[in-house]
């Protein structure tokens, strides 16, 4: 496997790390989720949306891990 470095010294695959920003933005921008509807088994949107981001953030971390693990 080649580990060519871009001129900036950052390995191209390290850009995958930007994926880590997605859960941060999605859970900190309150206007996106401060709603009652739609509810899920009676739970208002605010709550299940944030809880849903727990596994989704795991997925983001896992993808970044597999894409960059040989670069650590």
């Amino acid at each position: 496997m080649t580990t060519s470095h871009s001129p900036s010294g950052i390995h191209p695959r390290l850009w995958w790390r930007l994926l880590l920003l997605v859960p941060i933005v999605a859970t900190l921008w309150v206007p996106w989720y401060n709603h009652l509807e739609p509810t899920f088994i009676g739970i208002p949107f605010l709550y299940w949306y944030l809880l849903l981001w727990v596994p989704l953030s795991s997925v983001c971390s896992a993808v970044v891990y597999f894409k960059t693990r040989d670069l650590a």
Partner: peptide
């Protein structure tokens, strides 16, 4: 009420930061 639920985004946000920095 709802303000207490900030703890959920708190822990969601914390891990990616730790992931990127602490190694």
């Amino acid at each position: 009420g709802a303000i207490g639920f900030f703890a959920v985004p708190y822990t969601i946000v914390a891990y990616p930061i730790v992931f990127a920095v602490l190694p």
